[in-house]
């Protein structure tokens, strides 16, 4: 850096560096400390908005902490004890897993197929790609409100179509299965295109020659997807599985707004019988409707551990998944 070797001037012009080059310790300090200083902003922000809340939540979870009250007695692990015997918490855990599986598996499979179809010379390719991303840039509230109307009991389009083909109308919010399917469809609508784009990007890095060889060997398109593409983009598949898993463990807006179609109370409880209350919604109910912050914090920590376990499980599962080609 030539600037550093310029002679020092007593009255520093705008661009000159005031520090004297004859100060070796400063230079050394620069060498050793600067890199850390440059990455520090991220870590400072992460500490403030990531680590600190995590630890503070753990601290809060050890108290009988009302959101508004100023006296919050220490209760040790009582909140955790209550939580583990709380049927509604485990109900929420089940709902979260169920909605997660129902949305993630078809979503990722569909994304793979879509990406595979687009991974060939097509007219108006950019248009297709933008279209894929469109549902994702739509606000979640708008998506859920529209879908909730489609799934409306009395005036919903889905029920009207069911009526047309002679199938009984469904009260989508009333049952566990129907509500989970409805919510899973909303999630799929938003995220399939996004994952397809990620897959598409990965697929374009796969060398053409392999496909050409496969074609010469007489492999069909489906066979090529299964035996060439998927093994070649496995790191990307693992990435999307992990991100989708984390995302589906945190679902809250969909069930909240879907339940708001039933009544005010059924919104935070995720249905009259908690048919579709997810973990995040349960946490919201406890923390922000009942103001039991200590208890909600304990739930948040257990939820965090559950996310780690589920992500770890999925990671192992996908890593063991092997196509025909070993990479």
């Amino acid at each position: 850096m030539p600037v550093a070797h310029r002679a020092p001037k007593p009255e520093s012009p705008p661009r000159a560096r005031p520090a004297a080059p004859s100060s070796p310790w400063r230079h050394r300090l620069d060498r050793t400390v600067s890199p850390y200083a440059y990455v520090a902003p991220f870590f400072l922000l992460f500490a403030a908005f990531g680590v600190f809340p995590l630890i503070y939540t753990a601290w809060v979870s050890l108290h009988d902490w009302n959101l508004l009250s100023s006296a919050n007695p220490f209760v040790g692990l009582d909140n955790y004890g209550r939580l583990f015997s709380d049927g509604y918490f485990w109900n929420a855990a089940f709902n979260t897993l169920s909605i997660g599986v129902l949305s993630a598996v078809p979503q990722l499979a569909l994304a793979l197929v879509l990406a595979h179809l687009l991974n060939r010379p097509l007219r108006a390719q950019t248009l297709f790609r933008i279209t894929l991303l469109l549902p994702n840039v739509t606000s979640v509230v708008a998506v859920v409100v529209i879908f909730s109307q489609l799934f409306g009991r009395d005036f919903g389009l889905v029920n009207a179509l069911l009526d047309l083909v002679g199938i009984d109308r469904v009260y989508w919010q009333a049952d566990v299965a129907s509500s989970h399917v409805a919510i899973a469809i909303m999630i799929m609508w938003r995220w399939t295109g996004y994952n397809a784009l990620i897959y598409l990007a990965a697929m374009q890095a796969v060398p053409r020659e392999i496909y050409e060889a496969a074609t010469i060997d007489g492999a069909s398109a489906a066979r090529q997807l299964w035996s060439v593409t998927i093994p070649m983009i496995r790191p990307t598949v693992i990435f999307t599985v992990i991100v989708t898993t984390i995302g589906s463990m945190q679902i809250i807006a969909e069930p909240l707004l879907f339940g708001a179609q039933v009544s005010n109370g059924a919104a935070t409880t995720g249905g009259t019988d908690r048919q579709f209350q997810t973990l995040a919604l349960y946490l919201y109910e406890k923390g922000f409707r009942s103001f039991e912050f200590g208890y909600a914090s304990a739930a948040a920590w257990v939820m965090f551990l559950l996310v780690v376990v589920v992500v770890g499980f999925n990671y192992l599962l996908v890593r063991r998944m092997r196509g025909g080609l070993d990479v």
């Binding site: 850096m1 600067s34 200083a37 902003p41 400072l44």
Partner: peptide
């Protein structure tokens, strides 16, 4: 190099930290 320095009187290692602090 042509990259201008902006923080004139501030020792280099401190500049980004200061920026972060200011941001905060």
């Amino acid at each position: 190099m042509g990259i201008p320095r902006t923080g004139r009187r501030i020792p280099r290692p401190l500049a980004p930290m200061l920026a972060a602090a200011l941001f905060a």
